[in-house]
Design a protein around this nucleic acid. Structure first.
Lengths: 217, 217
DNA sequence: ATAAAGTTTTAGTTTTACCTAAACTTTTAA
DNA sequence: TTAAAAGTTTAGGTAAAACTAAAACTTTAT
């Protein structure tokens, strides 16, 4: 159906679309995928020919219904495989990304649905990212950031904006994971760094860190 | 490391090597992989450059130690994934091949070893084919064919020479699977077809069929 | 209004994996 | 034992995918 490269572009556009209201720019795609802008333009035209994106010269792209649907199946596969790797194969949450990047391109509808069943229809992956269902519906994402809590408030860690291995390793070192309860003890006035209580332990987090942690109840 | 195509050639050579004593011929590879002989010659030279095969013009190839080792890792992955698909994801044994052909190319040493552990170190895949261990040791294969049994003798089905979907579907229809006890009731003199008792049921099998069924005790 | 920033076009390159047809080698069997 | 048949290799391509540098163009920001 689609090449691996086409699928990677679709996924990139899908992710970039969430942070922008207009079209997704050529340069943002080229930065994310580490290619040159000219390569992106070429691929984007190919995707437009296949009706996967709407493309207006100089104004970026956005996914069509069909493009979004396909992007969601890739995201679904990626996140389901991450669950499998962490929950069943003892991978750490910071080791799964590269493997899931390969597994997400395996083509078999039955495989995805049986895997989903086997994992008992998880709603969130090990990083707290929502898993689309077979029809492309995304569970609600927790949008409140730890940095939005006031002194004395508390929240339960529900996900992360930055899923990089570096950030995840940092969190592991502070014993912060999905489900960890975090109470804000103090917010430093000058740099907005936070002193917090996470599972009995007092820790200190920069604004950069608190901006990348989503909380709920 | 290696491309998917290179891995497919290695695997093909590995399988063909088991049925021949000399080198594996260009034409047998081209027939198995559905390509032209000229393409095979080209790839074989590439593999020889990489020291994966020994190649003598006009006399075929055979795997080097390194080539065999790599072929075995692919076979290991293929068969482990088949176990996973059948034992954990409810695939039928005749549906797993194409998916396993994709999964066998996923590159992650940790994934293979964790999958093996998760499956509790299976020795044989769902078709009775032996699974190489992490060091490339193959469990013994059952070599006795059902066609070698005499009237009145009985054996337990241990594997199949022909793993094609067509043959596996045929077997399923006769209720023959791994572990099925089969007793030879009669061997027809003129075409060597066999009447047998398989799990209480009387069935009739052609010579072609009995030649493709391995039995043990 | 113009310079800077971003985008597209042009005109390639590289890699991988094919193919056909002609030339060559080995095998077979008369 | 030799010629034809069968199999293999070489030569000379093709095609697709993905990339690139540099020039031309469009938008935007001052």
């Amino acid at each position: 159906m689609f090449t691996q490269s086409e699928e990677n572009y679709l996924k990139a556009i899908f992710h970039l679309q969430q942070d922008v209201d207009g079209g997704v720019s050529t340069s943002s795609i080229s930065e994310l995928l580490q290619t040159k802008a000219a390569s992106v333009t070429e691929m984007v035209k190919k995707l437009a020919d296949k009706k996967l994106v709407h493309y207006q010269k100089y104004y970026g792209v956005h996914l069509t219904e069909s493009g979004r649907a396909h992007a969601l199946t890739i995201v679904r596969k990626h996140r389901l495989w991450e669950c499998f790797l962490v929950d069943r194969l003892n991978f750490n949450w910071d080791e799964v990304h590269e493997v899931a990047e390969q597994l997400e391109h395996i083509k078999s509808a039955k495989l995805v649905e049986e895997l989903d069943k086997f994992l008992e229809h998880p709603l969130y992956d090990p990083h707290g990212d929502p898993i689309p269902d077979a029809d492309g519906n995304l569970p609600k994402r927790f949008k409140k950031k730890l940095s939005e809590l006031k002194t004395g408030e508390q929240g339960v860690c529900k996900g992360f904006k930055d899923d990089s291995s570096a950030f995840l390793k940092f969190l592991a070192k502070q014993d912060i994971g999905l489900g960890t309860a975090i109470k804000v003890l103090n917010i430093e006035a000058f740099d907005e760094s936070v002193t917090a209580l996470a599972d009995q332990k007092e820790i200190s987090l920069s604004k950069t860190a608190t901006n990348n942690i989503y909380v709920g109840n």
